[in-house]
Design a binder for these strands. Structure first.
Lengths: 331, 331
DNA sequence: TTGAAAGCGATACCAA
DNA sequence: TTGGTATCGCTTTCAA
């Protein structure tokens, strides 16, 4: 592969001049420019990114650390991130942790090695103390994560309030046996699951309802409609069935509802269902859910990240995005 | 940020020795190793990726050029790719073309600049002549693409046969007014849409059915259930309604079915529906569909790409993955 | 407007 | 075992 020296030699100029042409600098004579361009064409030259990156100290790449791409929430988020990155001329590296805290740290390491100019960290799985050291080695923004101790910008939705609203709605409708789906990791520093769990406890306690552990379903894969189907089957076997379900995602809600209806269970009469996110499927199936601006969250976080990368001040560094309960026919 | 020289100085050794420690080479005395490790710890040292990449001529990154991540097919594919990349210790760059042929070329350029060690190109949008030049500058594998002229490995599903099977199934069931969803770009070199369109023409022609342009729906966004809902509304307004729909995706099929049922339309009695992919939602809603091993396609393509990257021979470079019609209750 | 040359930060060959 | 040093390919300052 030809390099800048080959071009310089062929064009009869110095590498400095070639570089100038490459970067559109002024002060390059028409004659030199043409000669260089001709040489580049003839030798089919393309500059080597690694060399440029090394010299510039920038890579033009950001990393998005997410749990898994195979989930509507994440792909929606990536869509938002992609939008902004495209405008900025940046590439995106997807890093899937598969909910393994260790992997998260491994990917954060990309910031230290300067393989990326910045990182978006979705739903942080590690304690801030573990993440903090990485933050000092480059731009980092938390998305769908809230961490009081963190000193970096963050964009999130208040999951406590979101869940609370949904659960209060169910309680007001008279439900006292409310099932809930939560992921296994209810770490205190987990922005999504922990607050929802807190809201569940609070709302029930305030309503004088005792928590029934049989109604708590952990490890339900939120991105997949089949998980909802399975959940229905489990609940169906129960003697004391709940009268309402806070599904935690629209996919689970949809799967549950479809399977329930197939078995002649009426929604919401026999069991009310609330989803989360307000994905297209919730609108389609007319599912009551908690809307959250996923894509916008991705966009906003990226914008903050790029300000950091560009060395600009970030005006509001802790951003709570709005959510709202969308009441439809499943409650 | 500390660099290898700082470490060398602090540890009282040469950069060569530091490099040896860094790369786990033999022939480093215990004493040197400890000194270097201690220095690295004290200075909080991390090697700079760009420098390593430049020197080694490798980046440890592959690019996946896809239409958009916000689509179950793509995220499934990415999941498969991610699996293999993880095993190989590689990072993945997602490149979304948004179905713009020009963007595809822009991303292929990453291979020339050596910003990535290889590229997976999904559903190639450009004519092979345009793509070929890039192929000569590094490892390239086509996924979900078939191109006779191409000289690089490719993994795909025979969309002609898949669509044909589905359509024949409908014809056998007695349908003669069959609607079909196709994306706008039916370029001759498009692996997905063009063959399906061909199959549609062939099957109908063989059955002596004249093609009715009103039954051809272009520009239906295949990844989104709401598109299916809208499609239903459009078809509902028609005076001569089709009796069957080849939806092109499970999402569109699902949206269509749900909306149809809401309006009291019986499936399959009033209108039969066939999806494509066999996503979880197809199983859940018991939709007849054409199964294709999306994730495996991603895995297989990645494996070929890594063989190329490692300079190993690729035994079978044109791989047709199996598909099969899954008959369920919507036909 | 141009070029020489000093890096950017690591790797690895060749001697010692 | 170790170190000196050339090298990867490009950018940019300093002089001319």
């Amino acid at each position: 592969m030809a390099n800048i020296k080959d071009i310089a030699k062929k064009a009869g100029v110095s590498t400095a001049t070639v570089s100038r042409v490459l970067n559109g600098h002024p002060y390059v004579s028409e004659r030199s420019r043409l000669a260089v361009e001709e040489a580049m064409r003839q030798l089919n030259y393309t500059p080597n990114s690694s060399a440029v990156h090394l010299k510039r100290g920038k890579t033009g790449v950001i990393a998005a650390i997410i749990k898994r791409i195979d989930h509507p929430f994440m792909s929606g988020l990536m869509q938002g991130i992609g939008e902004v990155a495209l405008r900025k001329g940046y590439q995106i590296m997807v890093c899937q942790t598969r909910v393994q805290a260790q992997e998260e740290l491994r990917f954060l390491h990309l910031l230290q090695t300067k393989q990326v100019d910045g990182i978006l960290l979705e739903d942080m799985q590690n304690d801030w103390e573990k993440v903090a050291p990485y933050a000092s080695s480059g731009p980092l923004v938390l998305v769908n994560s809230y961490e009081k101790k963190a000193t970096v910008p963050m964009v999130y939705v208040n999951n406590y309030n979101g869940a609370r609203q949904a659960l209060l709605h169910l309680v007001k409708k008279g439900h006292r046996s409310i099932a809930v789906c939560l992921a296994k990791q209810k770490n205190a520093f987990c922005t999504v699951q922990w607050p929802r769990w807190q809201a569940y406890q609070d709302v029930l306690s305030e309503a004088g309802i005792e928590i029934d552990s049989r109604y708590i379903f952990e490890n339900v894969s939120t991105g997949n409609v089949l998980a909802g189907k399975e959940l229905f089957r489990t609940i169906r076997e129960m003697s004391d069935k709940p009268t309402a379900l806070f599904a935690g995602s629209d996919q689970v809600a949809a799967g549950f509802i479809l399977e329930a209806r197939r078995h002649g269970i009426r929604i919401p009469e026999d069991i009310a269902v609330v989803g989360f996110d307000d994905q297209p499927i919730a609108e389609l199936m007319d599912i009551t859910t908690v809307y959250q601006p996923i894509r916008e969250m991705g966009e906003h976080a990226s914008e903050m990240l790029f300000r950091l990368i560009e060395g600009l001040p970030v005006d509001q560094s802790v951003v709570e995005m709005p959510h709202r309960l969308v009441v439809r026919s499943t409650t």
